[in-house]
């Protein structure tokens, strides 16, 4: 063995690459250009929201503000008008929060138990329901909108926040169940069997073993649901009333209202405010966000 290594006395390891090879210049050049295209809209959004209207009319949308003003943000938050309401986007923000929190908790609670039951407590027909659930996630929502309106009306919660919470929980179920099912299937079965031998039941195993073991996947699920529900527009329009509209719907009504002079700085501040929640989640969560969307793409 010693001889063998001694004979390999030439240079070892991969050939060192020059930092400024032609390949690298092209590679990083393309990536930098593409990144620029991706960053520009965010840049323009922020810059516009910090300018006054005279400066916007005079200048270049890509230029940073000469005089920074936060007035558009204040106006967008507290006094921008939609129809007769002039209390700004804050109303939509609080509506969205009130929709978001129960929807996230309810949908994750249901889906995690589902995923657990589908893996460890299979019953006759459980796989059939799961298959329908996954197929259901591809069906256009439009076909189920009206029947859901009728169901919610029968239940007396049509047009309320709770109706919308229920809708989000129902439509969050396919992807979340898939997510939890895939995760729980990777938990060693011996663990489950050992707990069974020790006399733990359905809920005992769920709360004492599965739940504590799967905190990362719960975080992924929260990220998925928070961004998904926050960004929803269609369900908000269909299942709530103007006073209870979530932030996205109110934002669209503010910006695309036909009356009055267009205040582009206020519009962009409002857009930025609405985008801020998912952006913060995105930048804070990093790789977990990627894991969430990968889970959605990988077939179960």
């Amino acid at each position: 063995m010693a001889d063998a290594t001694a004979n390999l006395s030439g240079p070892r390891g991969p050939k060192p690459r020059k930092a400024l090879s032609r390949r690298n210049i092209i590679l990083y050049g393309i990536l930098a250009l593409v990144s620029l295209y991706y960053i520009l809209p965010l840049w323009v959004m922020v810059m516009t929201s910090l300018k006054g209207m005279p400066e916007i009319r005079m200048g270049n949308i890509f230029a940073p503000p000469v005089e920074i003003t936060f007035e558009p943000w204040v106006k967008a938050w507290s006094s921008a008008c939609t129809g007769l309401n002039c209390d700004g986007l804050s109303r939509g923000f609080w509506n969205s929060i009130q929709i978001l929190i129960p929807s996230v908790i309810l949908s994750i609670a249901i889906a995690s138990v589902n995923g657990y039951a589908l893996i460890n407590w299979k019953f006759k027909g459980s796989e059939v329901f799961f298959t329908i659930l996954i197929f259901g996630s591809f069906i256009p929502y439009q076909i189920m909108l009206y029947p859901i309106v009728i169901l919610l009306r029968e239940m007396g919660i049509y047009g309320t926040l709770w109706g919308l919470v229920l809708v989000h929980s129902v439509f969050g179920m396919p992807i979340l169940t898939l997510l939890f099912r895939n995760y729980f299937s990777s938990v060693p079965e011996e663990l489950f069997k050992a707990a069974r031998v020790d006399g733990a039941g359905f809920w005992g195993i769920y709360f004492r073993i599965m739940l504590p073991m799967s905190l990362p996947i719960f975080v992924v699920a929260v990220i998925l649901q928070v961004t998904g529900i926050w960004n929803d527009f269609l369900f908000g329009v269909v299942f709530t009333k103007p006073d209870l509209y979530p932030m996205t719907v109110q934002l669209n009504n503010i910006v695309n209202s036909v009356q009055g002079v267009k205040e582009y700085n206020v519009n962009m501040a409002a857009t930025m405010l609405t985008g801020l929640v998912p952006l913060i989640i995105y930048f804070a969560s990093g790789k977990l966000f990627v894991r969430g969307i990968a889970a959605g793409a990988v077939k179960g």
Partner: peptide, 12 residues
């Protein structure tokens, strides 16, 4: 950078 728009809603 390439993925952040995906976190934003279609409205935004």
């Amino acid at each position: 950078i390439l993925l952040y728009p995906f976190a934003l809603s279609f409205i935004v």
